[in-house]
Amino acid sequence: MSQNSVISDHAFDFKLVFESYGVRVKLEASSKELLEKASEAAESALLGRLEIIENVNAEHSFGFSLDDDGETLFLHENGERITSDTSVKRFFRFFDGLLRIKVAEFTRDRVFIHAGVVGWKGRAIVIPANSFRGKTSLVAELVRNGAEYYSDEYAVLDENGLVHSFPRFLAIRYFDGELREKLVNPSSLGGRVGRVEIPIGLVLLTEYEADAVWNPQTLTAGQGIIEMIPHTIPRRANTKFALNVLNTSVSDAIILKSPRGEASDFAVEILSYFDNYISLARTFRG
């Protein structure tokens, strides 16, 4: 069978529909075992925040099938084959990220921002950035220094601009002949997971650069929001809501932009800076 051919719907005899963050997703597979694996992967990807629902249609579907030899797995999205793999682990890891993005993009009452997040004295420090820019390393160091862990992947904002935790294990990358990833429980860093939704106090627009000196520029709310938009997942699917929530969320936040050096040094420096900022703000508010 050619790589790009599309399997017709009847090849998927096993199906289930779940809802997560208000988004309905159908999983369908060519075997019961494959559907169970897909279902487990979905549970893990969405941190168990899903509910299986009966007799409903879904806006989005993922199909899972195997080739005749049972060696190659195929992934289909909305009926179209999108990728294949012979490694089961790698295949489901890919699906893991894809599913989260799908839910993040189409949820109607939350705004997912690709960012690391920690809590510090009741305020969130949000670090929007692309992958491989040191986000997780910085989050890990902030947690080691006493910050509460919220997420190393998504800031989940509600309509009031408050940040909710999305505390999957930290995905720490390392080089071992090739680039790899290990999942780290935040408790092993001495950290606690933040459970309460909190307002954003600080947005850090920063990426790791060797020998960089932290020399931040303070951005206005508007300037900060346009820097956050490329990391805002539903920017096209739910633009008006996303912009409104971003505006609300940064209304009382300081937004800083600068490259930074090593995460371990920077984490201490930024927490100290944020402490000073908080106490100054309290003084001015009386």
Binding site: L75, L98, I101, R236
Partner: peptide, 13 residues
């Protein structure tokens, strides 16, 4: 344009 840019550089092939 695509939200997939946030897919943490995941791939199968």
């Amino acid at each position: 344009q695509s939200a997939l840019a946030a897919n943490s550089c995941r791939c199968n092939q």
